[in-house]
Amino acid sequence: MWGVHAWRGGRADRAALVERLAGESGGGAARQAAFAGLDRRVRRYPWGKRLAGRLAATGTNLTPGQFTAAAIGLVTAAWVAAAAVLAPFFGPIAALLAGWTAFSFLEWRRRVRNERFIAQLPDLARVLANATQAGLALRTAVSMAAEELDAPAGEELKQVADAMAVGHSVEDALGELQQRLPSRELIVLVSTLVLSSRAGGSVVESLRNLTVTLEERKETRREIRTQMSQVTITAYAVPVIGLGSLLLLNRIMPGSLSAMTGSGIGRICVLISLGLYVVGFALIRRMSRIDV
């Protein structure tokens, strides 16, 4: 685990250096221009617009065209690799799995960003309470919080402040934030701010109490995540064991997978076993999901 952590840290440092150098030399713009045509074509379709929204929620710099090209390349590579290593029958299955993995990556990035934003909500409520107590308006308090907080809270609040600066109401700007990062904690915070902007009055005491509540919820979520980590790892270990058994079987008896999938009964048995692995993965993930 230490080696994986060090390797990921090195890759992150290298990516940051490459991005900085590319920004200085204009390589980033050239890379964007290379996918500009594909990006325009993808955005014409409804699914491309939805994909753009999902990419925006993840906080990545990927465009819909870049993600589409990467997903197509991943699906093609998985098909070819599975057909060459295992058997031609496993090519389409690996392609479907690769496509699911690509979109699961987006969901994972969105969930990670959402969790980071939720972890920053107590600090956000504290900054807003201090600014409101000092006599600042809510718009000014949001702009101040956008400058003081790190990403992703700072980036999201900057969008809220920019929306209010061009004439959007507090309710509309915060509603867009709630749609981008849905969570119960954010719903409570947005409701408190919207009600205070409508009815007037002091919102300092409400934000103070909300800060304490958000801190307690953050600790509770952290404890639950720690206790359910073994179940989560088990959900991913079960399919890996199944794939490893296929590779081991083909290694011990070369050509056995091709012979097994050469008949109709063999294909049916393989599909049933894969379906059972999928059901097991879904059930384990569902049992480990606890709403707080």
Rank of each mutant, 00 (worst) to 15 (best):
P182W: 07
A137L: 14
V18K: 06
N130S: 03
A153C: 07
R267Y: 10
L214K: 15
T60W: 05
L248V: 14
A161T: 04
L257I: 05
A30P: 01
G255L: 03
V270N: 04
A12M: 08
E148P: 08
V170T: 14
L193M: 03
A84T: 12
P254T: 09
Q179L: 00
A119D: 05
F35P: 00
S258M: 09
R217P: 02
L189C: 13
L189H: 12
G242R: 03
T63M: 01
G275T: 07
G53W: 11
P92V: 02
M228D: 13
A82S: 08
V292G: 07
Q133V: 11
T220K: 06
V4H: 06
R126C: 00
G242N: 00
I252T: 11
L86W: 10
L193H: 05
T60N: 09
A161G: 12
V279S: 05
E107V: 09
R111A: 15
A70H: 12
R20T: 04
S206F: 09
A131I: 05
S202F: 00
R113H: 07
D150C: 00
A95L: 07
M260F: 14
R8T: 11
A6D: 05
G37Y: 12
I224E: 15
Q179K: 08
T76N: 11
I284M: 03
P182Y: 06
K49L: 04
R8M: 09
T226H: 11
Y45P: 01
F67I: 03
D39M: 02
L174N: 08
V240L: 09
T68N: 02
I187K: 02
T63N: 04
V127E: 02
A161F: 08
P46Y: 09
E115W: 06
F67P: 01
I233R: 04
L86T: 09
L136E: 10
S256Y: 03
F281P: 07
T226V: 13
G73S: 11
G280T: 07
A134R: 07
T140E: 11
L246H: 05
M144S: 08
L186K: 00
L124C: 10
T261W: 10
G255H: 06
H5P: 03
G167P: 07
